[in-house]
Simulated scan of single mutants.
Amino acid sequence: MNIYVSNLSFTIQDEDLRNFFASYGEVTSAQIINDRETGSSRGFGFVEMSDETASKKAIAELDGTVVEGRTINVSEAKPKAGRPGRSNSPFRSNNGDNYNNPKSYNENRY
């Protein structure tokens, strides 16, 4: 089961997140999500556990606990929805031309 953990301290690392859940069962992965530009933690992450029963117990017991002075939120991760309006971007035409790229604009124009 994939678990979403939010409101984490920005100092929490992947291994810390793994350790929070390890006492409940096998953790197959634990990842803090970082900002693409700065590399800093965004304050949330995902934990994947192999046993659904252990996952549900971890969610029930860890949700609302205080870690490094912050009350964390723990819940079952929802599937990522598609990005709405992606195909209707003002910088893309329906045929895939990228109008934010001056080279493609010039190639189409001349």
Rank of each mutant, 00 (worst) to 15 (best):
D63K: 07
E26C: 10
E68T: 10
R92A: 15
S89T: 01
T53I: 07
R36E: 13
S23A: 11
G82Q: 11
G43C: 02
G25M: 07
K56R: 15
F21R: 04
Q31F: 02
S29R: 12
F21V: 07
A54C: 07
D51A: 09
L62R: 09
F46A: 00
T65S: 11
T65K: 14
G39H: 14
E76S: 13
T71H: 06
A22Q: 10
A77H: 06
S89R: 06
G43S: 03
S40M: 15
F91K: 14
S93D: 15
S89N: 05
N7H: 12
L62D: 09
F46G: 00
F46P: 01
S50G: 02
Y24H: 04
L62S: 08
M49H: 01
D63Q: 07
I72Y: 08
T11E: 09
S87H: 13
I12F: 07
P90Y: 03
R42L: 14
N73Q: 15
I72A: 11
S87T: 14
S93L: 11
S55W: 09
L17I: 03
K78L: 07
S40E: 15
R92V: 14
A30I: 11
K78A: 10
A54T: 00
V47D: 03
F10H: 13
T65P: 08
I33C: 02
G64P: 00
I32F: 05
A77K: 04
T53G: 11
S9M: 05
K78E: 06
G25T: 12
T71P: 00
L17H: 02
G25R: 06
P79Q: 09
D35I: 01
S6Y: 09
V67I: 15
N88W: 11
F20K: 06
A60F: 13
D63C: 08
L8R: 06
S9G: 04
P79W: 05
S40A: 15
F91C: 11
E52T: 10
N94P: 10
G25V: 09
S29K: 12
V67Q: 13
T65L: 08
R83T: 05
A22V: 00
F10I: 06
T28P: 02
G39W: 13
I32C: 01
